[in-house]
Design a protein around this nucleic acid. Structure first.
Lengths: 136, 136
DNA sequence: TCTATTTAGGTACTTAAATTCCGAAATAGG
DNA sequence: CCTATTTCGGAATTTAAGTACCTAAATAGA
């Protein structure tokens, strides 16, 4: 079984966790509760949120009653930004196989895969945290 | 750096190798030559072609002057078939994160990701080996 | 029939990414 | 202060993909 679109478990956790926090504003949430609500690995979620914290998306507070809360402008953060923090920067227009030199004259996929990558990119870019905190 | 569409090096080798063989018909090609032309790992290519051979896409012949050649109908093979042999069967319509139960009422991506997955799927399905053997 | 060539296929190794573990640091509350 | 809670961050582990290695089997050609 294979997934055509490349989203890591970590990026999924980041998105879902952030949505929960956004919905729960202005109260903060800690990793334990988040993991329970998401039915996810607590340790993994913790690591993911360390990255989000370093990247400035969330503010972390240690100690009892600690946890994570959204930073000021994070409501309007896009999934693309979250995705790139976790899975790495996306570069469009490159060879879909990551090659610099191709054996063939023209790409076997014409520009179909670049077209689709751009589609994914734009979809990721359209999705904002604020969309969800209202939605549910 | 991250690739939005999920294609393994192995699947890439399979496709590119098969195209070379298709172009070179009716002569067969061996792993060494293929690897040189593709600038790729000989051992990896060999493993990939073992899979293709088992799956019936190519016929293998051992010994000197041996190598691989397309099976009768392989000219009209689609990239989807190649992809699934190497990277595994694709299932459309499932949760983009591989979850069975979601915490949220509606999918955060609506059906955007399923739409795109179907797009990729159909693109993979349209691409035939025969398209390339003529093209170049 | 012998030899060199070439794929088959099992196992083991390497590497990178993803995930987990654990001790350290911070802090709220008693 | 002291203690329990919680994040931090480095280290260790696991997993998956890719690579290497080796022996066996097939076969063309001398």
């Amino acid at each position: 079984m294979s997934n055509l679109i490349n989203i890591s478990e970590a990026a999924s956790l980041a998105l879902h966790g952030l949505v929960l926090i956004a919905k729960n504003q202005p109260l903060r949430m800690n990793v334990k509760v988040l993991a329970e609500e998401l039915n996810a690995s607590q340790t993994h979620l913790a690591k993911v949120f360390q990255k989000l914290s370093k990247a400035g998306l969330v503010k972390s507070l240690r100690g009892p009653a600690g946890g994570f809360e959204l930073n000021n402008l994070a409501e309007d953060i896009t999934f693309l930004e979250i995705y790139e923090i976790i899975d790495g920067k996306v570069t469009l227009g490159a060879c879909p196989f990551g090659k610099i030199h191709c054996v063939f004259q023209s790409c076997m996929f014409d520009n179909e895969l670049n077209r689709i990558s751009t589609d994914i990119y734009n979809t990721f870019k359209q999705i904002k945290l604020s969309d969800f905190s209202k939605k549910e």
